[in-house]
């Protein structure tokens, strides 16, 4: 009925991808500029969440669920990076 067809859906999703790409460029500027280490880690975190969204959009576009498997380790990797850097900053090992 009012459901758009495949090309219209992909057109709408590509407009949304444009918003995310613009945001990623701004995050990347902060990653390069970042005066201290925690700023860079924060920018990498948000960039990897954006990348997870890109991966899901790409797997919908390619109609392939195997591509979307990478999104979950990416999100967990951002959490691991946070934990390692915060423990490095207070000079302890992970698990202390």
């Amino acid at each position: 009925m009012l459901m758009p067809d495949q090309s219209t859906t992909m057109f709408l999703l590509s407009i949304a991808t444009g918003l995310f790409i613009t945001a990623s460029i701004f995050y990347f500027i902060r990653l390069v500029k970042g005066p201290t280490l925690p700023d860079m880690v924060l920018a990498v975190d948000v960039l990897s969440y954006d990348l997870a969204v890109f991966i899901i959009i790409f797997s919908i576009a390619c109609n392939s669920p195997l591509l979307s498997v990478g999104a979950l380790p990416l999100v967990l990797w951002a959490y691991l990076l946070d934990m390692y850097v915060s423990k490095y900053l207070i000079r302890k090992e992970l698990g202390d």
Partner: peptide, 14 residues
């Protein structure tokens, strides 16, 4: 689940 915990830990370390 993990994003608030991670940024909180980063803030504490900083």
């Amino acid at each position: 689940l993990t994003a608030p915990v991670g940024s909180h830990a980063l803030a504490q370390g900083t």
